[in-house]
Amino acid sequence: MKLAYYPGCSLHSSSKGYSDSFVAVCKKLGIELEEIPDWVCCGASSAHSVSHLLSLALPAHTLVQAEKMGLDMVAPCAACYQRAKFAEYEMLNNPEMKAKIEQVIEMEYKGKSRVLSVLEVLSMIEEDKIKAAVTRPLTGVKVACYYGCVLVRPPHICNVDDPENPTKMDRIVALLGGEPVDWPYKTECCGASHIFTMKDACLKLGRDILQVAKDAGADIIAVACPLCHVNLDMRQTQINKKFGTSFNIPVVYITELMADAMGIDTSDMFRRHFVPVEIKRQA
């Protein structure tokens, strides 16, 4: 499988560990990636609040670049993914909007390239292939898979098995030899970019998510979105301070967890985290 890679702004900078682990895991699994030259920002978290049309045209511009490469496009960042899916959906289902978008980007979308999330890509890989790549299984490690919002909603936009109880990430954890925990906050919202404007509200949402994960017995939380990661990892100390809690739950990207289980060196990825990442396997 060969895919056009759309890293997006976060993966190029603050969430480099997500990108590094994603690229390394793809290599292990025989997925070839080619970064889209001169991709542009998808416009999340703001363009949609300034101009609806611009917010569709930005990811459409990058999607058409992927189409020119003759490849489907993978966007590991959940926000880039959702924004690109909105553009794809409008262009496939709304001819009037498609015409407007094409006028803005001054290019045509033929409808051949599709947008894929990390979870969609991984679910296309046979179980045996993933299992065969695991050299350090996550034996006894309890993982709360946290999907958040934009990866699973709205369901007619995001390709998801169940918007209230998605399972694609849980399946991966199980294939890595870990134990996905059953918990009810898989798709609760972390407040996303509101952390910059309404910090207190987001800290409360983060506290709730961490608490429920902890109550479910999770050792670790797995995510697939840079903003979920910021809100649960980087802000964990602030959450503890504000609510008098003492959470110390590592929050890792699902691809980092895969990399670790596949024997890839994760020290540089984990060094970037705020909550120290310790994966306690049982003998």
């Binding site: 001169d38 991709w39 542009v40 920002c41 101009s51 609806h52 049309l53 611009l54 045209a57 930005l58 511009h61 407007k100 006028q103 803005v104 980007i105 001054e106």
Partner: peptide, 18 residues
């Protein structure tokens, strides 16, 4: 990105259409 006026131009066209 290489084409530094790209986004501004896109935004202008979007504004005209909208």
């Amino acid at each position: 990105i290489k084409n530094k006026d790209l986004i501004r131009r896109m935004a202008e066209r979007a504004r005209q259409i909208e």
